[in-house]
Design a protein around this nucleic acid. Structure first.
Length: 217
DNA sequence: GCGACAG
DNA sequence: ATCTTGTCGC
């Protein structure tokens, strides 16, 4: 991945990067036939000074593990709500360099457009790689939504300042909804469909689960 | 000023 | 994210 910008040292620099790159986000579908879906996740040691980034590539739609990579590197940016990508994307890019299959779609751990400046982690990773991405978060960050129906597949728009920035999606009957938003090159309806197809059995997509497994165990 | 706050 | 086992409930 050719670096498009130096990694910032301050929040002010990070805001400038977000405001510049957000114009490059593509919100319409621009995917190839999806044969490989990747999951990315980052974990930290107890001191927070070492980041472990994991990437798994699964076949689609059968969701069988094809490739995986884990890299450990020094943590370079603190966790500040609204700036997660500056903490995690550098390590994720390193992990992506260690797989030979180019995924057709990446499911990210975190928000995409559902972000204060409409440029969450999934958008950032998508713009830097050019690969279609979807933001899949376990918790709400911004926006509000009505109560989601109890059945698998039910969803409600996540609304912020009068526009839809994502969806609260019930991936399994009776479980807490997850938050899906556009990352890059995938529209929201398609994003919801891909997430549901990647989460046939559990609350979180298999991509996230397999990457998370590498991060922890 | 008082909460809220992805991972 | 991370510290952490068993346990209550469907």
């Amino acid at each position: 991945m050719l670096q498009r910008h130096p990694w910032p040292q301050t929040v002010e620099e990070a805001i400038a990067i977000q405001e510049q790159l957000r114009s490059e986000v593509i919100t319409a579908n621009q995917l190839e036939t999806v044969r490989y879906v990747a999951g990315v996740d980052v974990g930290y040691d107890s001191a927070n000074d070492v980041s472990r980034a994991a990437v798994t590539v699964l076949s689609f739609p059968d969701l069988q593990l094809q490739q995986q990579a884990v890299v450990r590197s020094p943590t370079t940016f603190p966790y500040i709500p609204g700036f997660l990508s500056f903490r995690e994307v550098p390590a994720v890019l390193e992990a992506l360099e260690n797989i030979s299959l180019r995924p057709d779609l990446i499911l990210c751990d975190g928000q995409g457009l559902a972000h204060p400046r409409r440029f969450g982690l999934a958008c950032h990773l998508g713009v830097l790689t050019g690969i279609p991405t979807i933001g899949v978060a376990k918790n709400r960050f911004i926006g509000e939504h009505s109560e989601v129906g109890l059945d698998r597949g039910s969803w409600q728009p996540l609304l912020l300042e009068g526009s839809t920035v994502g969806a609260a999606l019930r991936t399994q009957t009776g479980v807490k909804p997850i938050y899906v938003s556009i990352g890059h090159k995938v529209n929201l309806i398609s994003a919801i469909e891909y997430v549901l197809r990647c989460a046939p059995k559990y609350r979180l997509p298999e991509t996230t689960r397999s990457a998370d497994q590498l991060t922890s165990g």
